[in-house]
Design a protein around this nucleic acid. Structure first.
Length: 479
DNA sequence: CGATCCGTCATTAATGACGGATCGGTGCCTTAAT
């Protein structure tokens, strides 16, 4: 960052955001953008990633376009910015009426910040309008969604590179909290930001979170309830089933008299918002949730995250447990594991990928594919057909994809059953080492874990990224 | 894998036992036809 930019940024940091100091990683990310580099920013949850793109926007010319995965996230950000005095901000999404939308599109260049979904960016009226706008910075928030959702769930995430190119390849910043090197490579490839790229990477480890695993034998509810005798909220309990989330919230209310509610995709937008804001305002102590809950939850004092079911990947697990102890004052991640729990995940994985017959059927009937519903098998087939990738090659890639998912799940099983340091297992997946061995690290390192647990998190950058991950996958191929 | 849902059958006609089928998680966006 030039001296002039540096001073200017510092002044804005104070005037617009009220801070005198940067938090870890922020200054590097801001400098990267101001030097005109594309950036891939990976900072642990709760370290202020929004400032990384908002601050340089005030120095850069033109509009900042922020691609965001969730409408609720956009709405929260817009509201927050408005209450901080920023008027020139808008979210372009399906909450708007037709006339509102066209009004906003007409004067889109007047806005400094525009939030938008990947899907909305596929509408030709929108993209045509944006092409005539000077985009000073293109931001991809929660960029791991490209890899996590792109292939089977939200295919428009994989079209962001094309969008960027149609917008004239503006300066780009991708932000995430958890991405292994392979995911980062995919983000870089999809967005096509390899040239002039600056990676700002911080470790994913959260030493202030204690890692506990409880082996269960047909007594999960009892183990859960007794854990709640020790662990006091606010807290989140994650499930892989909506029905069980509902049922358990009821159980906790009845047995413990704790204010608990469930949260999943069956809830209306209004109920989701209501429960979320009650939780943030400490009117609810526990949320029993599916993976629908959490992104953008910025509550500093969540004290525990319990998993009733095994998550499908270390990424998911870290994202979910990372929601506790944002204030760094200590938190507990507890996994309730019973042999065979991985069955649900195996099933979900298999159901979401086409087998060879289904794929070749899609290839021979590609003309009809347009009319089919948007399930994940169709999405994947459609993706490869649209890319004009030959059938054999597509099948190879799907097999790789499946192997990767299996590897992720296998890591989680190892995490659940191993007798070795659990933090080491989790971090080695991200090619990280346990930086500081703390008393009470995990269920393996300390026989009987107890509260309080509030170590100081070290502030040390670590950047040795070998290609260990690829080696591990290669090993799996040979098995 | 395991739970649960649904239809069928059998038997002191309204329940219950059985087995086969189905489902289990994430969200954008719907401007047309009754």
């Amino acid at each position: 960052m030039s001296v002039k930019h540096n001073e200017q940024a510092k002044a804005i940091l104070f005037e617009k955001f009220g801070f005198t100091e940067y938090r870890e990683g922020q200054e590097e990310a801001i400098a990267s953008a101001l030097q005109g580099n594309h950036s891939l920013v990976m900072l642990p949850t709760g370290t202020g990633k929004t400032l990384c793109y908002q601050l340089p926007s005030y120095i850069l010319e033109g509009t900042t376009l922020i691609i965001s995965p969730l409408l609720s996230l956009m709405e929260d950000q817009v509201e927050k910015m408005k209450s901080n005095g920023e008027k020139s901000v808008v979210a372009l999404n399906s909450f708007l009426t037709y006339s509102e939308k066209s009004q906003i599109l007409k004067r889109i260049a007047d806005y400094k910040f525009v939030f938008i979904s990947p899907e909305m960016l596929q509408q030709s009226s929108v993209i045509e309008r944006l092409k005539s706008v000077m985009i000073g910075l293109l931001v991809v928030d929660e960029a791991h969604c490209i890899s996590q959702w792109g292939m089977d769930f939200r295919p428009d995430y994989l079209k962001l590179g094309e969008v960027k190119s149609r917008l004239g390849n503006p300066l780009t910043m991708a932000l995430t909290a958890t991405a292994v090197d392979k995911v980062r490579e995919e983000i870089i490839k999809v967005l096509d930001i390899k040239d002039n790229l600056n990676e700002v990477i911080y470790p994913v480890d959260r030493p202030s979170i204690q890692l506990r695993i409880k082996q269960c034998r047909n007594n999960k509810d009892e183990e859960l309830l007794s854990a709640l005798d020790e662990l006091k909220g606010p807290g989140i309990i994650y499930f892989t089933s909506k029905r069980l989330a509902d049922k358990t919230a009821e159980l906790i209310r009845a047995e413990k008299g704790i204010r608990a509610e469930s949260y999943h995709s069956d809830l209306t937008k209004e109920d989701k918002r209501k429960i979320q804001s009650q939780f943030l305002a400490d009117k609810l102590s526990i949320i029993c949730a599916t993976s629908a809950f959490g992104m953008g939850i910025d509550k500093p004092d969540i004290r525990f995250v319990i998993h009733y079911h095994l998550p499908g990947s270390p990424e998911m697990y870290l994202q979910e447990i990372g929601r506790c102890s944002r204030d760094r004052k200590g938190g507990v991640a507890l996994l309730l594991y019973e042999k065979g729990d991985e069955g649900i995940q195996i099933r979900l994985q298999q159901d979401s990928l086409p087998d060879k017959n289904e794929l070749s059927f899609a290839y021979t009937h590609s003309d009809k594919l347009v009319h089919l519903k948007e399930d994940s098998k169709t999405n994947i087939s459609r993706y490869f057909i649209n890319q004009k990738i030959p059938l054999e090659e597509a099948w190879e890639k799907i097999s790789d994809y499946q192997l990767n998912k299996q590897y992720q799940l296998r890591t989680m099983i190892e995490y659940a059953v191993s007798t070795g340091c659990r933090r080491k297992i989790l971090l080695s997946y991200f090619n990280e080492e346990v930086a500081v061995r703390l008393n009470g690290c995990c269920s393996s390192c300390t026989e009987s874990l107890s509260l309080p647990y509030s170590p100081i998190e070290p502030k040390k950058i670590k950047q040795n990224y070998e290609k260990m991950w690829q080696e591990k996958v290669n090993l799996l191929f040979n098995l």
